[in-house]
Amino acid sequence: MSYRIVFRQMAILFPFDDVARTKRLTYDSQYLLLEEGGDNNLFDARTNKVARDWTVLAAGMHWQVIGTVTKLAAAAAGGSLRLRNRQTTPEGYIGAIRRHLADPIAPDEAKRQGVRVNGTITIGQDEVIYDPKHYERLAERNHTETSRDGQAVKVWTFNLLDPGDLLDFLTFHTLEQYQVQATRVPKSIWNQTAAWAPDVL
Rank of each mutant, 00 (worst) to 15 (best):
R112Q: 14
E145K: 03
E109Y: 08
R116Q: 11
T171K: 12
L166E: 02
Y135T: 04
T122C: 09
D108G: 06
F158S: 01
G124E: 04
R116E: 11
N118R: 08
N118P: 06
G150C: 03
V155H: 00
R137Y: 13
L166I: 04
L161P: 09
L138S: 10
K154C: 07
V128S: 14
T146E: 10
D108C: 12
Q113G: 07
G164K: 15
T144G: 13
L170N: 08
I129N: 07
T122Y: 04
T122G: 02
R137V: 09
T171F: 15
D165N: 13
R137L: 13
L166K: 01
V128W: 11
V128E: 12
W156H: 01
E140A: 06
V153L: 03
D108T: 12
G119T: 00
W156N: 01
D149Q: 06
L138F: 07
V115I: 14
T144C: 11
F169H: 02
L166D: 08
Q151L: 12
L170R: 09
L166Y: 03
N159G: 09
D168P: 10
D168T: 05
I121V: 10
I123V: 11
G119C: 00
V117S: 00
L170P: 07
T146F: 05
F158K: 03
E127A: 07
R148Y: 12
L166R: 02
N159L: 07
N118Y: 07
D168M: 15
K111R: 15
G114A: 09
Y130W: 15
A139M: 15
D108M: 15
D149E: 06
L161D: 04
K133P: 11
N159I: 05
E136W: 05
V128F: 15
H143E: 10
T146D: 08
E109M: 12
